Simulated assay, not measured.
Amino acid sequence: MTLSEEEQKILDYWDSISIIKLILEAEKPLGRYQFTEGPPTANGLPGIHHVYSRSIKDIILRFKFMEGYWVPRKAGWDTHGLPVELEIEKELGFKTKKDILDYGIDKFNEKCRESVFRYIKEWEKLTERMAFWLDMENPYITYENDYIESIWWSLKQIFDRDFLYLGKKVVPFCPRCETPLSSHEISLGYENITETSIYITFKLLDPNYKDVKIVAWTTTPWTLLSNVAIAANPDGRYSLVEYNGEKLIIATTLLDTVLGEGNYKKIREFFGSDLLYKKYEPLFPYFEHLSEENGYVVITADFVNTEPTSDNISTGFVHIAPAFGEDDYNIGQEFGLPF
């Protein structure tokens, strides 16, 4: 008997004794250990990565069951989100949101509902074959009213306990779909591209750095209007140099990359933390008043890279615009930068 045949024999035995039913009905002394399956989208085929993640989940569930916990293994199906909608858009040949509106939102939603369980047999087969024991007969389905109402109920409980607050968050936005995107949805179409970048200088206003400019590098020059800070690596080493009659500050390890070997004269070296809270002149005059609100200041951040790599042509400084980019917003909150 082959290994595959031996596995199938064991699976058949578990099925004959209704193993999942036995697990769900078992009396366990330590009480409940709740598990709700992070639901897959069944309008797409399962992949090997689902086997990896489910194997890790299953190890925990079996361990907690053997410890003496009752472990309800609630299955689920994700029937919302862009993956479902994009699949139907492709089928119907739609290119824009207007196509959906012309077709009819109700008709489009119905098409989506029809598609969400397209590959449910393949998902059930995978689940059974890898012995990932789930209560597949009583799954939660995200488009059903019971589930939707449970989300509203949960939000109401959070609100009543004063755990909700109004804040801001930078999120990716799709101009074609006219909607914010989750990190998962971004990954569906993520690709590396070559982008035009620029170097730009910021003149320091500190008397100890008279006529000295910080050199920053960016691939998003359209965000410079919203610049309110420059980030340096606190532990990185930076050099003040003379170059073409100007005094510039650049990360020491990146001097040759940016200015060219032998094209500059080094004056002195220091750490990025030595520049903390140094003020600089705004690039544009429109928001000069923000200088009085902790704007146009050098801050420090660990995510700033000062090491040379094959694709790193930065200067060791990052221009910060809290309204553009998650890192910018988070560091802006940390340092109390204007938004």
Rank of each mutant, 00 (worst) to 15 (best):
I19G: 07
S150T: 03
F163K: 15
G316Y: 01
N233Q: 01
V241F: 07
C177R: 13
E5N: 10
E293A: 09
L101M: 10
L30G: 10
N330H: 07
T219D: 08
R113L: 13
A229T: 06
D160S: 12
S197P: 01
L254R: 00
I200A: 14
E25D: 14
E144K: 15
I198R: 07
F335L: 09
K121T: 13
A301C: 05
V171L: 09
S187L: 02
Y103C: 01
S310R: 14
F335H: 14
E246Q: 13
E334T: 12
P322W: 00
A75L: 11
F335C: 10
P285I: 00
N305E: 15
E85I: 12
D106Q: 09
P282K: 06
T252G: 04
P139E: 01
F270W: 02
D160K: 15
E334A: 13
T223S: 02
P175S: 05
K213Q: 13
C174K: 07
D58Q: 06
F173S: 12
L155P: 07
H184C: 11
F317P: 01
E288Y: 14
Y143L: 15
G262W: 08
L337N: 00
T220V: 05
S197M: 02
L205V: 03
E292V: 08
E37D: 12
K21T: 04
T300R: 01
Y277S: 12
L24F: 09
L22R: 15
I267G: 07
L101N: 12
L126R: 07
I331N: 09
K74F: 11
F202C: 08
G47C: 11
T223Q: 00
V212E: 04
G44V: 08
L134R: 01
R129I: 04
S239N: 02
K279N: 15
Y199L: 06
P234M: 03
D12C: 03
P180W: 02
T306V: 04
N233I: 05
S314N: 07
I88L: 03
F271D: 11
S197G: 09
Q34F: 11
V170L: 00
D160C: 09
P46Y: 05
V71T: 01
S182V: 04
A42L: 07
D58F: 07
T179L: 01
G295C: 01
D160E: 15
K98F: 10
E124W: 11
E144G: 08
I88C: 00
E89F: 08
P234F: 00
A251H: 00
T253R: 15
Y33R: 05
E7T: 13
T315Q: 08
L24A: 15
R176G: 05
D256H: 03
E114T: 08
F117P: 05
G81S: 12
L164P: 02
Q8P: 09
E91T: 05
C112F: 01
F202S: 05
S183C: 11
N312P: 05
E334S: 12
L30H: 13
D311A: 12
S182N: 05
V170R: 02
S310T: 14
L254V: 03
F163V: 12
V170I: 00
E292N: 10
F287N: 12
S16N: 07
Y140A: 11
F335I: 10
G325I: 02
E85V: 09
V71D: 03
I105E: 04
V84E: 06
E85C: 13
K125M: 10
T306M: 03
S4K: 13
D160A: 11
I230Y: 06
K213C: 12
I19H: 10
V71E: 02
Y143K: 11
L181H: 03
L86S: 14
Y190F: 14
N109S: 03
